[in-house]
Structures are given as C-alpha cells and as structure tokens.
Computed example of a mutant assay.
Amino acid sequence: MGEPLRVGVVGCGVISNAYLTTAAGTDELEIVAVADLDRTRAEDAGRRHDVPVLDLPDLLAHDGVEWVLDLTTPGAHEEVALAAIAHGRSVYNEKPLCATVAQARRVVDAATAAGVSVGGAPDTVLGTGVQTARAAVESGAIGRPVAATATMASGGHESWHPHPDFYYAPGGGPLLDMGPYYLTALVHLLGPVTAVQGVATRPRAHRTIGQGPRAGEQVPVDVATHVTALVEHASGAVTTLLMSFDAPASLARPLEIHGEQGSLLVPDPNRFDGDVQVHARGDEWRTLPPSAGYAGAGRGAGLVDAARSADRRTTRASADVALHVLDTMETVLRAADAGARLEVASTCDVPPLVPLTDLASRPEA
C-alpha cells in the first residue's frame, strides 16, 4: 500500500489543530515534526498530537520530511516556502497561497526549478459538498450554467479570534481570507475567471478584540473589509460575489448556481460536506445524495490527495488553481481602486472530479 506521506508542519496556530487531527485519522499522512516561532505554542501542539517539536531550520533539514505544510500567516508564506524548496521539499500553503501574486509566482517558479511541488488550501472543495454539486452541474442537472451568487457576510473575526491582527493587515481582509473558499469552489463549478469588476470599502479604521487575553484592545484596519465584485468565467457564466466583515448577520445562501434549466444550492465552501439541493424547472427543491468527493474529509485532504497520486507530488489542491484564485482576488481589488473592468492575467486547469471516496480508507490498488 506504500509508505505514508511524511509532513513537517510550520505554524501551530488555531488552524493547525484541524490539520493535525486529520493526519491522526489516516495512515496516509505522517507528521514528522512541528515548528513555530513561539516554542511554547509548538510544544503545546506537540503534546496534544504526540509529535516531535523542532526549530524551523532543523525541520526543513530533516531527511524524513517530504512536504512542508505551511500554516503561518500570509505574510510569511513566501519566506517559509522558499526556504523549504531550497531544501528540496514540496510545499503546501494555507490560503491564500501567498500575500501577493508576485510572491506566489516566485514560489511556484522556484519549485519548478527545484523539481518539487506546491499545493495550496482550501481543500474543502474536495469534500462531498462542492464535488457533489460539481457532479450535478457536469451531468446537466441545471442545464448550461449562466449565473451564480457567492455571499460571505460576517461581522469580523475579532469577535472570536484572540489574535485577529493579521485579518486586517495586508494579505488579510474578507476577500483574501474567505474569498479563496468561494472562488476555488466557483472555479471547480464554473471554470477559471477571465475578467472582474469590483467595489471595496473600509468603514472602520479599527476593530476591538472581543475575547481572550487582549479583549478590549483595538487593532488597526489596513485593508478593505467589504468587497463586492462581478466575476466573469471562461464558461460564459457570471458570478456576483460579496465578501464582508461588516455584516453582523445574513440569511443569504453561500453559493447559488443558476442554469438554463434549473438552480443549485451549494453548501458553505468553508466546509467539506453539507446538503446540495437542486430545483429543475417545473419541479420542487430536492436534496441530492453525495455522489462525489472525499467523505469524512477535514483540513489536510489535499495532502492525502497527494499521497494517493502516482508521484506523491500531484494534488487536486494545486498551486495552479490557488495562484489563479489569488490573481483573481488581487485583480478585484485593483479593479475596485481603478473603477474599471479588468482582465485576469492567469488561468488554470480545473482538477479532475474526486470520485466518492472515504478519506479515512485507502482506495483499493
């Protein structure tokens, strides 16, 4: 059945627990070690998940590490990735791939030159929610897709996160933080993006931390916190996108896809599962059973996907898609500044559909 994919984790913040839990639930990933600039935080993660703790240089130089999982903040992604690539490691970055497209291109170019791979979150799109919706679209259940809406409306992460500073620093904001989930799903469902228009606002200059040791402390807001966009896909479909940290509550559906013969409700792309509902013309809403995707998936499914590939370096959570999504988001913000429709310079290949598979069970040889 082959050896597990050996992974070194850099960054032991809040999201690391989800990745380490997924790794513990499958025999296809082995966490070789964890590292963090805050040694105490790394040691806490090491104790909770029973994995060794190393300093970053030692982790990168460890002969047993094949992939480096970079869970640092976006501003550190390029530096960590380039250091890992220089040691001959493949790299899987949390979203966004890097803080800027220029940084992401340097990482991808370095990996190509070194003969290693780059992957990037989100891998939530590989779960049964988005993949079942994609199977429905590809089967013709709603006819030719013509339009979509994507809505993420939140009051901001400072209400729950004890250290929300990076959400409001360059590389953060609702579009770069949450947009990857929605735009990656839309790329899987409707294909790559060709052009965008946008409007972006920043109603408040500061945010107040709601809980934890820094409760009551204000953090500066240096990015747009409410972004709307029109997104044109190569397929001809057009998406209306809203990403906001200025909306305390909303009843809007996360994703709706509308076709010539029907409509599709797609579950929250920040989750791996959820009900997919379809409404064909002349029919009623009905829930589709899961028909594609990794069942029981969690953060790290993209690395499991790499472990199952023939070369242990190919993942559907690819840098190709992640860079295109980052390029799309950066172009939206430039379009908002310019008040213009701008073409997206990059494109990508849409990864193959994931057959309905239990993530915890290896496929038969």
Rank of each mutant, 00 (worst) to 15 (best):
P4N: 01
R6Q: 00
G8P: 00
G11W: 07
I15T: 08
I15A: 09
S16E: 04
T21A: 07
T21M: 00
E28C: 08
L29S: 01
E30C: 01
I31K: 01
E43W: 03
G46L: 05
G46D: 12
R47C: 05
L54F: 14
D55V: 03
L60R: 07
V65A: 00
V65R: 00
V65T: 00
W67F: 11
W67L: 00
G75K: 01
A76Y: 14
H77N: 12
A81R: 10
A83C: 02
I85V: 15
H87E: 15
Y92L: 03
K95E: 04
K95A: 02
K95P: 03
L97G: 04
A99S: 09
A99F: 00
V101Q: 01
A102C: 07
A102K: 10
Q103V: 04
R106M: 06
V108D: 06
D109F: 05
T112C: 02
T112H: 13
A113L: 03
A114I: 12
G115C: 07
G115V: 03
V118Y: 05
G120F: 12
P122V: 14
P122C: 11
L126N: 10
L126Q: 12
G129Q: 06
A133K: 03
R134P: 05
R134T: 11
G140Y: 07
A141V: 06
R144P: 06
R144L: 15
V146S: 05
A148W: 12
A153E: 11
S154D: 15
G155Q: 15
G156A: 07
H163A: 14
H163G: 06
P164H: 09
P164K: 11
A169H: 13
L175V: 14
L176I: 09
P180E: 06
P180I: 11
Y181V: 08
Y182E: 05
L186E: 13
L186W: 10
L189A: 09
L190M: 09
V193S: 09
V196D: 05
V196S: 06
Q197K: 07
G198K: 10
I209R: 02
I209Y: 03
G210D: 04
Q211Y: 01
G212E: 13
R214M: 12
R214Y: 14
V219H: 05
P220A: 12
V221K: 03
V221D: 07
V221H: 03
D222P: 01
V223C: 05
A224G: 04
V227W: 03
T228S: 13
T228H: 06
L230H: 04
E232F: 01
S235F: 08
V238Y: 02
L242A: 15
S244C: 13
F245P: 02
D246V: 07
S250K: 12
R253P: 02
L255Q: 10
I257K: 05
I257Q: 07
H258A: 08
G262D: 06
G262C: 06
S263D: 14
V266N: 09
P267T: 03
D273L: 04
V276D: 08
V276L: 10
A280R: 15
E284N: 09
W285F: 15
Y294E: 13
R299I: 02
V304Y: 00
A306P: 14
T314P: 15
A319T: 10
V325M: 02
L326H: 08
V332M: 13
A340K: 13
T347I: 01
L353G: 02
L353M: 03
T357S: 02
L359S: 04
A365F: 09
A365M: 06
